[in-house]
Amino acid sequence: MSKQLATKFGEILFKNPVVPASGTFGFGREYEAYYDLEKLGGLCSKGLTLEPKPGNSGIRLWETPAGLMNSIGLENPGIDAFIEKEWPHLKELDTVTVVNVGGKDEESYLQAIEKLNAIEVKLIELNISCPNVKAGGMAYGMKAKTAGDITKKVVKLSNHPVMVKLSPNGDSVADIAKACEESGALGISLINTVQGMAIDYKKKAVVFDNLYAGLSGPAVKPIALRMTHQVCQAVKIPVMGMGGISTWEDALEFIMAGATCIQVGTMNFVNPLAPLDIIDGLQAYCEKEGLANIAEVRGIF
């Protein structure tokens, strides 16, 4: 393990601060053909819900300048199938598997969380920020009050540490993050995708059946960096920053803004080896700057 990159997120040890983001990495298998997943600090599962979900109809992807809009709609096999089919493989990996959980209402979040109590998850990422589902999803993440309430209930029920994933689309992220901290969250991750819209003028039609969709990729980076900084200023719990990270330099900027770990999303599609390139780049940076650990440059603004 690299001494310079080893990172503690709360009490959880990550080999390095680089974690592929939920929904961009499946359950890891697809990328195993490209590299050894144990090189990663961790990885986030696709967003899981209590019941299997078929996801949204119609076009699901739309490219924009330096960005990607998606309307996947949390297609996933459901918690039970995950525990049965994916977990046996993931749990053997020597890396932190973060399990991302979504829901349509309080009951479905809590039942999903309860089922996860049966397995040894190191960290849950509570997704209250998906802009692509009609019920639940982002609704809980728009206001400090609702975010705090659901976090409190989930933390109480769960045997595992809970990190809450925030949306850039609601009230002040700093306020929402504080409410989650007060409700017992171990950490915060942000940002989920930025809600956007696409119109096909030639067809005189909206592109997405669900009308709006989520924007990610380099286009959102400055917004994500600013929000990561605001949250890091507002809370004491650790933060995983993400949004448009495509190079080790981007990753370093998020760490300088205060992020303990960083997640890589859309860039996995552009370059399947992106997380490894980022790890190597951060390692070389530490060596060049003579840092004992990357933490020396964390939160310097």
């Binding site: 697809e30 699901r60 992807l61 599609f269 399947p272």
Partner: peptide, 11 residues
């Protein structure tokens, strides 16, 4: 329309 081409994005 494809983003990853390898089965990871469900797009």
């Amino acid at each position: 329309h494809m983003a990853c081409g390898i089965g990871a994005c469900l797009g």
